[in-house]
Every structure is written in C-alpha cells, then in structure tokens.
C-alpha cells in the first residue's frame, strides 16, 4: 500500500511561477486522471515530482509513503518507487535500449538480474507491446517514431514496477492501434499489484481504455475542479473553455 501526497505545491520555471498550489493524493489501487488545456502546467507537475533540474519548487511538499521526495535526487526518487513516463522521451546517442534497460532494472531492483531471466522478461515485455526484437539494439529513442517512443516508455513502466506511475500524455500522437496496445500495458501494470497511477492527458479518448477513479481538471497551474469519471464525459462534451473563462 503506497501513497503519493502532493501538498500545496508551487513550482517556477525560469523565475516564472507555473504551479500555484497543487494538492493531490494518489493511493495504490487508484487511477487519477489530470486533464487540462495545453500550457496549464501538467508537465510541470510531472517534471517537478520527478526532479527535473529546470523546475524549481518554491513551496509545498511531495511525500511518497511519508518520505520527502523533494529532498531526494532524481535517481533516488526513481529507486524509491516513482516513475515518470515522459511526454517527449529524449534521444540518447550511442546508448542501446538493452544496455539502458539492464542498467535501469539493476539500479531499481538493487541487483543485476540474471542475464537469461532478464532476456526472457524483456522479450515477453516487448512482445506484449508489439515491439520488434531488433529494437533492443537501437540507440535509446533515436529515430523512434512517436508511437515507438511511447511503447518504450510503457515497457520501462512494466519492467521497473514502480509504486506510483506518472504518465504524461502517453496517449498523444498515437494512432488507434498503438493507443490500444499502450493502454493494455497500463492496465497490465495496474492489475499487477499495489500501484497508483497519475494519468495526465489533454484528451478523453485514453480514458475509454484506462478507466480513472478520479478526474481532476487542471488550469492555470492548479486543480480547479475534481470529480469521478463522469467529469471526463462532461469535459468531452464541453471542452475547457469554462475554466479558461473562470481564470481570466
């Protein structure tokens, strides 16, 4: 049983205040959707939790099972059980996918997996996500299509088995088939144990495959409305204009 608590979080980028007091608690077994217009600060929330150096926390706290995440380095947060699937995974030249995945799994599990078992685990994971075997030899995210990048993020999610996963627009740029494959991956992860998911999205379509328990509307750097799955349906029908007006 794990809990991610975000309390009154304020974050700036380049001295500009972006998050203006975010409160949110994600428990294992729950899926929270954060929905909001472009530029509302959703990725800022994700990066700040993960510890990206560009984002400065100016107030509030983030706790994972009571531990202060904000005082940890980026890699310590990941080893503590946090995972961020990125909206724009970066290309890292010369580092192969297989080498990267083995290093990550070794770091998070605290010991190197047995080569034979890891090879099998990797193959199963890649098959599940319809990722070609040749992929393992390619350089990390280099020349990957949008869909390949997102599938690769979910492959990491399934291998690293975090306590809490933050998925930042994992659905964007995917065609219907890829969206289904990626959603199945997220659902396998949700079904695999005591894990919590914070699903950030601009559109409602992924919520048809990955059913949220809670929906939070994000605007102007904070949560402006909360509800159950029905809130997503309303957003589908009405869009975000209402909130833009409310903020103006």
């Amino acid at each position: 049983m794990s809990t991610l608590e975000i309390r009154d979080l304020h974050v700036s980028v380049a001295d500009k205040a972006i998050l203006t007091g975010v409160n949110l608690t994600v428990r294992s077994g729950q899926t929270h959707a954060i929905m909001g217009p472009n530029g509302s600060g959703k990725s800022t929330l994700a990066y700040a939790i993960a510890g990206h150096p560009k984002y400065t926390v100016t107030g509030g706290e983030v706790l994972l099972d009571g531990e202060d995440l904000l005082s940890m380095s980026v890699d310590e947060r990941a080893r503590a059980g946090l995972f961020l699937a990125m909206q724009y995974p970066v290309e890292v030249p010369g580092v192969s996918v297989s080498n990267f995945l083995r290093s990550a799994v070794t770091a998070v599990r605290g010991e190197a997996p047995k080569l034979r078992e890891f090879t099998k685990e990797l193959k199963t994971g890649m098959d599940n996500l319809s990722i070609d075997a040749a992929f393992a030899q390619r350089n990390l995210n280099e020349g990957f299509s949008g869909g390949e990048k997102k599938r690769h993020e979910i492959l990491q999610l399934e291998l690293l088995k975090p306590k809490i996963a933050v998925l930042d627009e994992t659905d964007s740029g995917l065609d219907v088939d890829a969206l289904r494959v990626v959603s199945e991956g997220i659902n396998r992860f949700r079904g695999s144990g005591d894990t919590g998911v914070l699903l950030i999205t601009h559109y409602t379509r992924i919520l048809r495959y990955v059913k949220p328990d809670f929906v939070h509307v994000f605007a102007g750097g904070r949560i402006v409305e909360e509800g159950g799955p029905e809130l997503a349906d309303r957003l589908e029908a009405e869009g975000y204009e209402r909130y833009a007006k409310a903020l103006a």
């Binding site: 990206h52 890699d75 970066v90 890292v92 580092v95 080498n99 290093s103 990491q156």
Partner: peptide, 28 residues
Amino acid sequence: DEHIFYLQARGIPYDEARRLVIRGFFAQ
C-alpha cells in the same frame, strides 16, 4: 542535462548515467 535526467529518472545514479552518456558519445 536532458540525457542525464532521462537516465536518472530510471533510477540510474548520476555517475553511472554520466558514464553511459560519455561511452555513448564515443561508441560510434
């Protein structure tokens, strides 16, 4: 920084992330 962040975000400690990126730089 983005390379290092991506690797660290997967649990890989800074020193190792740095080594991986430099090795990658020379790999070709």
